[in-house]
């Protein structure tokens, strides 16, 4: 066990955990930020996507020891009122079905748009290919990303 100082959603947080603990479980079990989801544990499904200094990363593969000193953003901190353009576009297109993968999808989409405000379909395919949705909401996700891109 060791103490780690983390900056999550603009707030300083301290946790006392095993250094190998993935950020996914630090967020979910220790900091009560459960919007970040467990899906596969091997960086194959994208449900646990968070932002590390603005980049989309799979938090199931990010040990807490590697997250110190970085700016971490989770779905809870993407916007104060849930009104990030991506979140608004998700509501406009009524994207979710079961909803479980959507936080990860939104975090991947938000990171894409931060780096590429006008993504083509191919850009979206490449950026979103790591996020699985078993309900099959992909076409709405793509449409919502285009809408968000217009409202950045």
């Amino acid at each position: 066990m060791a103490l780690f100082n983390l900056t999550i959603n603009g707030k300083s947080q301290q946790v006392d955990v095993d250094p190998n603990t993935p950020m996914l479980w630090v967020l979910r079990d220790h900091l009560d930020l459960v919007g970040t989801k467990f899906g596969c544990g091997i960086a194959q499904c994208g449900a646990c996507t968070i932002h590390l200094d603005g980049n989309a990363v799979r938090s199931c593969q990010l040990p807490v020891s590697a997250a110190e000193g970085a700016k971490i953003t989770t779905i809870e901190g993407l916007s104060e009122e849930g009104d990030h353009p991506v979140q608004k576009a998700w509501l406009e297109h009524d994207v979710p079905q079961c909803g479980y993968c959507q936080a990860g999808q939104i975090m991947s989409a938000a990171a894409l748009l931060a780096q590429n405000p006008n993504p083509s379909d191919t850009d979206i395919d490449n950026a979103m290919n790591g996020n699985i949705c078993r309900c099959g909401t992909y076409t709405r996700i793509k449409a919502a990303i285009h809408t968000a891109s217009k409202n950045l």
């Binding site: 930020l33 459960v34 919007g35 970040t36 989801k37 467990f38 989770t74 779905i75 809870e76 993407l78 849930g82 979140q87 998700w90 509501l91 009524d94 994207v95 979710p96 909803g99 479980y100 959507q102 936080a103 939104i106």
Partner: peptide, 19 residues
Amino acid sequence: HKNVEAKNIVTGKPLFGID
């Protein structure tokens, strides 16, 4: 009519059994 839970889903609210 829009999904009544959509806002909670897109903001990461605890809704699921795992939460």
